[in-house]
Simulated assay, not measured.
Amino acid sequence: MTFGSHAETFAGRPVVQVPADGPLPVVAGPVCWRIADWHFDEGSQKVALSEQFRERLDRFVDQAGDRVEALVVGAWGYAAFHQAPIAQLCAAAPRLPRLRALFLGDMTVEECEVSWMRVGDVSPLLTAYPELEVLRVRGGEDFTFSPVRHDRLRTLSVQSGGLSREFVGAVLDSELPALTHLDLWLGTDDYGGDTAVSDLDALLAGKLFPALRRLGLRNAEIADDLAAALATAPVVRRLERLDLSLGTLSDEGLAALLAGQSLTHLTTLDLHHHFLSEEAVARVTAALPGVEVDVSEPQEADEDDGEIYRYTAVSE
């Protein structure tokens, strides 16, 4: 799987595209606006925000800033050549007083590989928008985070083909007392995903984020190790949803998970895109009859010269 389409909904609202020029379309009810401007500037030096995108975003904020509650930001030029508009979004905060949900980086693989997306430090967005409740960010190159305190954020989702331990550590060092949903796409070491299970010790021990009820450790090549750690992790006892999807989970990891603490209190266990045998799939669904278990999208491992290879859904 790669990112083959744009988000059609975000924060529970249908996504409506901001036109390149002219008035905004008339909408009925709450919507999420999406702004994007893909263009390939071969002469770019990979150092600055696209002026073309800057003008489009400024025009949109002038048109509707005081009414925007949810915003998706797609291509900001060619994201491998241009920096993400984080500073511009932060500067626009006084003109976006009602913004509560933001998705930065809604691009398809045709627009930019996720590992090539130049993003920068996304945590200033939280400082600039103290009322923000949902933040989803996607990126790969120059993708960082700094520890912050934010009293309103309920959902934080970080999508990447390789999430560094420094990024993860900064998230876990943040004070997010209202956070109910944390979603980390750990990825692979080939694309910077060097986070180890030990880097998650405080999270798994239940010492962080007192309101947390939904945890996703997704798109991980260390899925089996995560499953083994979660088998005894105290944080699991207060979760409603556990998500290990999009990774390389095998029969070994699932056996370790099921051999541990009870999971029957969960409402959802998401394992889709997995490398489980039919027998393992039958076992987990039988073991958790009251839980919604997603075991869709089974994958086949590759074999080369006696070596077995399993791949995450998103890497490059």
Rank of each mutant, 00 (worst) to 15 (best):
A196E: 15
P23R: 11
R13H: 10
D151Y: 13
Q52P: 14
D251I: 03
D190F: 13
L71S: 02
E300V: 12
V47R: 13
E69W: 04
A36T: 04
A128F: 05
A255V: 10
Y129P: 02
G140K: 03
V235L: 02
L246D: 15
S296Q: 11
E113C: 12
K46T: 08
A80S: 14
G4I: 13
V15D: 03
R34K: 04
D270E: 11
L24R: 04
S50H: 02
S277N: 00
L57D: 02
T312Y: 12
R149V: 12
A93T: 05
A28D: 14
A231Q: 01
V109I: 12
Q299V: 06
D199W: 01
P14R: 08
P124D: 02
V15H: 03
L254V: 12
L182Q: 07
W116R: 10
M117T: 05
L99K: 03
G216P: 05
L215E: 10
M107N: 11
P85A: 09
L126S: 01
S5N: 08
P85S: 06
R95N: 11
R152N: 15
F53L: 02
G161Q: 06
K46P: 00
A287T: 10
V314W: 13
A101F: 08
D151R: 13
L246C: 13
G74H: 01
T264F: 09
L276Y: 02
S277V: 01
G65C: 02
P19L: 07
